[in-house]
Design a protein around this nucleic acid. Sequence first.
DNA 1: TTGTAGGCGTTATCAA
DNA 2: TTGATAACGCCTACAA
Lengths: 348, 348
Amino acid sequence: MKNRITIKDVAKEAGVSTATVSNVINNIEKASNRTRQRVLDAIEALNYQPDLSARSLVKRKSSLIGIMLPSFETQEQVAPTRLLANPFYNMFLTGAEYEARRQGYEILLTGCRDEKAVVDITHQRNLDGIVYLGMYPKKVYAYMKQLKIPVALIDTYDEVEFFHNICIDDEEGGYLATKYLVEHGHEKIGILGGDIRVLGVMQRRFEGYKRALKEAGVPYREEWTFEVDITCEGGYGSVRDVLSARRDMTAIFAVADIIAIGLLKGLREHRISVPKDLSIIGFDDLEACEHIYPPLTTVKQDIFKKGKKAVEKVIEEINQGYMNHKVKTILPIEIIERESVQNIKNKK
Amino acid sequence: MKNRITIKDVAKEAGVSTATVSNVINNIEKASNRTRQRVLDAIEALNYQPDLSARSLVKRKSSLIGIMLPSFETQEQVAPTRLLANPFYNMFLTGAEYEARRQGYEILLTGCRDEKAVVDITHQRNLDGIVYLGMYPKKVYAYMKQLKIPVALIDTYDEVEFFHNICIDDEEGGYLATKYLVEHGHEKIGILGGDIRVLGVMQRRFEGYKRALKEAGVPYREEWTFEVDITCEGGYGSVRDVLSARRDMTAIFAVADIIAIGLLKGLREHRISVPKDLSIIGFDDLEACEHIYPPLTTVKQDIFKKGKKAVEKVIEEINQGYMNHKVKTILPIEIIERESVQNIKNKK
DNA sequence: TTGTAGGCGTTATCAA
DNA sequence: TTGATAACGCCTACAA
């Protein structure tokens, strides 16, 4: 079999003990400069690579950050394919991997079959920290708390005090989007969203929408609130309802780009011209926004940064030790102006 | 500190030796059914989780499959953000993670700074197998060969005999796309691609294009060959060239959806109507194809399956031992008919 | 069928 | 400043 170059080989080559080699490797200032250099040379000469399994065994640390994707069995059976299908995850992972590597960690990517799986994997692999992607049923939090390692959640409004939480101000986002419409002369504004009434991201955006309406002195209209799945198909499928309730509605705030994209497709098929007949504003700023027609005006959040920040917070706690007072990290948002909203201010 | 439940604890609880516990865990048929059950009960009672670092140390196997993303320093400095930006990777990872987990492995996701980094990480982490995503400079292959573990490459035409290679028949794909256009009455067909003359995926698609033209008795026209970056911007930027060379060209084969999408956007801005004024066919079948306007007719490859298959081949070799005769895995492709190609057969 | 003991590569404690 | 040596948790001859 191939024999691994170990710390012993290095020690022999350098004519020192393994303890000294270990000290040098770990930047523990004990060796004299001369020995240190000898060790370094030996490492170089032998092309020594430390065995992280061994290190992990004794240190109980793996230099591994777990990224957990939601993939419970029921979901999985329906569509394992969709695990990462959300374009959101793409950028998130990019940011997370970037930051992890920058700080000498690697990413372990895994879906979790059930709520217990994460705890198990964490123990088994001695993970140093965890980032949870996606939404989880309440009882999963109990398991997360068993983990004696830093945990970061994304976009959650639950149990916030126990975990790192990387999010944006969704209420403000909903407000900004709606206000943008108002500023462009719209008053008859509908909202297209999902799970808009259960506590969470979408509900906050909905609150922001209502705040902006109120501020503009426009009454909220139940019949212009459309609830659908947060998917392309959801948006696409909503067209019938939207059109039949429309009457003099001039604009819609879609709480996620992905449903806006579906809606746009549906509207096109019904020969409703955007933004001439109906203005649309989205939320997220997916890459696709730029390439669809019309290019979608939207509330941008920096998803790359979200991934980067999540890993950053986790590593921060790894380094500093347990933080019993975790404070949300709120990332900025901004309106990206494209062509899906018409200015009707003068037309009134 | 928290004390880990070890194999010793289980042994004590079950009143057996650690060797017996180990045998039971690893499904080595030695223990009697009675002892086996006692051990299983103890494991259950204590909620024992094996320490994979320790196991990895002794077995020199980690149950970890590495997925390498291209991210060499030059690229990274320009745009670390784009590491995973390609929507292709999304689906690929989903498939890879799915298969890995199904077989009891986990995914280690990492970009590699330089060609040596992979070798180092592989050694350090005792990775059991590697999947390379993206394209690499030739000299990287030399490093890959040092790895004494199964390696899968995606879509490569280099050094194929040394690695697993998961690909499609790109020549056939180019042929099918072009033939589809021919069958719809087109003869004046351009091609939009990148790196079309260097050996590789794009070049093969180009070959297929030429074969279909030849078969149709249509001469190949240099001036209708457009080379651009394989990005949205590339496609978008090509519009000027395309339009000025166009004359009586009726269709274009874009060798990747991503450039087709950019092209579509550019054409729209020039008020060229697709497919009425110009037909477009793409390649890949990105999710976006369905949601843009017009929905893009394209050559579909199953990217989820590509990821799944790559991991499958790697694990196969892990289980069966070194294969000195690796044979390409060629995944099927098919035309997905949407609305970006006009049938002009009758108009002639 | 079961148990004992040595070793995997590293770190860390203590002496020297 | 350096070096022996005992863990870390697991596997696997080899012995019983």
